[in-house]
Structure formats: C-alpha cells, structure tokens
C-alpha cells in the first residue's frame, strides 16, 4: 500500500500528530510551550534533529537488515541519535549561549525525546523508503512544531488570565492539549 507523499505528510503532521495523537515528546512539550519564543526555537531544534535522525535511522535499518541483526535496532537507533543530538547540543552551547539558556535543560532532553526515537521506529515499521521517511519526518516535525506553537500561543495568552490556582501549570497545559487533540480529530481520515 504505497501512499502519496502528500498523504504521508498530512498523516504524520495532522491526523496522527506526534504530540496530540501519539503523545510523543510530551516532556519537552510541557516545559517549553510556555513561551512562543522558546516554542519556536524548540520546534526548530526538533525539526533539525528529526530530519537527521530519520536519515540516520534509514541508514541503520538498511545496515542491520544487511548484517541480519534486527535485535540491535533499538540500541543503534538510540545511540546514533543520542550522539547526534549531543553534538548539536555542544554546538549550540558554543555558538549561541542565549539559545542554550532559553532551551535550558531541555536540550539534553531532546535525546530522551520520544518523538525522535518514535519517528525512527515508526518509519521503520511502516517500511518507508528514503524519500517517504524524509517526508514522514518532515511531517512529524511540522506537526510537533505546530502543536507546540499552538499551545504556546494559548499559554501565553493564559498568562494573563485568572486561571484557578489549582489548575495552573502542567494540568492546564494537559487540558489544553486534550482540547486541541479533540480539535485535531477533525483531520482524521483526511486524504487527498
């Protein structure tokens, strides 16, 4: 069942949004969605890392199939992705201390961002070819960034709202995410 690239993109960004439908990457999502600025930066970082790790994952998978060692899939994925991310992290720390400060402890946590490993695992299990994987990663990153930015906008606005004290914080973000997740259900079944 080959799908058009466009539908793969719509699927991974809107229908099966990584955050709102698969719950991937919730931790950074809760942390950095408070401000638009950090949200966009984080979105950029995740997009970058996703594209890299999607390509890495494609290569690794091909390699592991070649040497007939499927049992090494998970560990190789995570190790390669983690090291790539760590490189990025060091690079950012060196190049832009302000960006590093803004993303704070979440840069190392990109490594432990399920969205990135999830992407690698899903694209492999769906058996996408290189181009499809790339589009899939692009869609996933776009969806992640979209969700992040939408929530950041709402949270920024709710900074200036009389939110009951008990609800403030993670609970509020989760509730918004829940409502957004329902709104995204409107995209289900979307295909061109």
């Amino acid at each position: 069942m080959s799908d058009s690239l466009w539908n793969i993109f719509i699927g991974s960004s809107l229908i099966n949004n990584f955050v709102l439908a698969y719950f991937l990457g919730i931790c950074p999502f809760l942390g950095v969605s408070a401000k638009m600025e950090t949200a966009t930066k984080m979105g950029g970082a995740v997009t970058f890392v996703m594209l890299i790790s999607s390509m890495c994952a494609y290569g690794i998978h091909a390699f592991l199939v070649a040497i007939n060692a499927p049992f090494l899939q998970l560990i190789s994925f995570i190790v390669v992705i983690a090291s790539t991310v760590q490189l990025v992290e060091m690079f950012v720390k060196k190049m832009s201390p302000t960006l590093f400060k803004a993303l704070g402890i979440f840069l190392p946590l990109i490594t432990t961002n399920c969205a990135i490993l999830g992407l690698a695992l899903f694209q492999t299990s769906k058996g996408y070819n290189f181009l499809e994987s790339f589009v899939y990663a692009l869609g996933a990153a776009a969806g992640f960034t979209l969700a992040l930015i939408l929530i950041a906008g709402l949270r920024e606005q709710l900074e200036f709202a009389e939110v009951p004290k008990t609800v403030k914080g993670a609970a509020l973000t989760l509730l918004i995410a829940g409502i957004l997740s329902m709104a995204f259900m409107g995209f289900s079944g979307l295909s061109f």
Binding site: I67, N68, A69, F71, L72, I75, S76, V79, V80
Partner: peptide, 13 residues
C-alpha cells in the same frame, strides 16, 4: 549473531 552484535556495538560505541 554474537560476533555480529559485539562487532557492531563495539564499533558503534
């Protein structure tokens, strides 16, 4: 597969 695993992971790390 043991050899493959050791070689691959060792190399990777």
């Amino acid at each position: 597969s043991i050899l493959i695993a050791i070689a691959a992971l060792g190399g990777l790390t």
